[in-house]
Design a protein around this nucleic acid. Structure first.
Lengths: 188, 188
DNA sequence: CCGGTAGTGTCAGTCGCTGTCACTAAGGCT
DNA sequence: AGCCTTAGTGACAGCGACTGACACTACCGG
């Protein structure tokens, strides 16, 4: 029953998220995911390289958004200001997807294997941000450091926003970057 | 031929590093590692939970060293200064182990699966550093941010030191933290 | 000398993942 | 309409990572 291919892919993602949330990542087999999606195990591995990657399908678009925002940031901003600018734009998208993203984050937080993959995606994101900064003329080494530090602050802000949804993500972002500044200035 | 247990463990680590370097991580089986170490595949998994962990046996002692140094740092220092203090001490140990650590880092850099595990270890290290900072009275959220940012700077310094061994790790550490300060101050 | 214990070998089995081949639905071409 | 290409799939066989269970043996203290 091959329909569009893209449809099977979405069903597999949905089925995987459900099963990971119900029984846990370790207690669900790829065959079960495929069965719930109405396809074969083999088809699962045609759409996703492994059992973890099925939860990380939207990272590529986020990366594209962020790098585009970095490129489109106004002239004359410092590297971290450029990143803050990009994070604000990406954050707005994230705020909309929250009901879908929340169970996903819960499953990832509860599964070491998925946390590893998540960290790898974060590292790739930081690399992409560093490349985007370099394209703006930021020094080679400095771009790498700025991208990683900026990403840490972003991640921190998202975590705070998850815990305290009362305030907007933008507020948490500003606060995280302010804390970053405080930390650095305190150094002799 | 059960001798000391600890001896088999060391032989397994050695054999694994050699084989990973020779054929690559993906092209070596756990059975081959066990064979070169003179034990059975089952024994490999008694000493290490999986094929990757065999390269990460010394992370626990590094973590212990770092957290101890954080606790022993002088009073009155800012969070990042405390971390810089701890990194200097750990760095001296690292400078001694270099001939052993270098092939290990090369293998990790060449293998995505091992990079994932490495990132997970780094995250655990940052968590431990954050806890050590909290024990010194640093605020809860700030400790987490400082630990991650500090670790990024440390990692950056180590990378620069690997590429440019002419200068000491301490110099690279100072430079990384100075760059960090510059980045933060540039922000409006 | 003996009993406990820790480290190991052996075997069987599950599951993640891959290569291969045949099949079928969908869309474009004449 | 009939055909042909192509993408998506099912079925099958197989490797390798990892686990549970059981038996065995070197060691260590009494």
């Amino acid at each position: 029953m091959p329909r569009s291919g893209e449809e099977a892919r979405r069903r597999l993602q949905q089925a995987a998220l459900e099963l990971y949330a119900e029984r846990g990542f370790d207690r669900t087999t790829t065959a079960e995911i495929a069965a719930r999606a109405g396809v074969t195990e083999r088809t699962f591995f045609r759409h996703f390289p492994d059992k973890r990657e099925v939860l990380f399908g939207s990272e590529a678009t986020l990366r594209a958004d962020l790098t585009r925002s970095v490129a489109a940031a106004p002239e004359g901003l410092s590297p971290l200001e450029v990143l803050l600018h990009a994070f604000r734009k990406a954050g707005h998208i994230l705020e909309g997807n929250r009901p879908f993203a929340e169970p996903r984050l819960a499953v990832i937080a509860a599964t070491p294997a998925l946390r590893e993959r998540d960290l790898a995606k974060a590292a790739a994101m930081a690399d992409a941000l560093a490349a985007a900064l370099r394209a703006r003329g930021v020094g080679d080494r400095l771009a790498g450091l700025a991208a990683q530090v900026g990403w840490v602050a972003f991640h921190h802000a998202v975590g705070a926003w998850i815990a305290d949804s009362g305030r907007s993500l933008d507020e948490h972002l500003d606060e995280a970057f302010a804390e970053l500044r405080t930390l650095a200035v305190e150094m002799g």
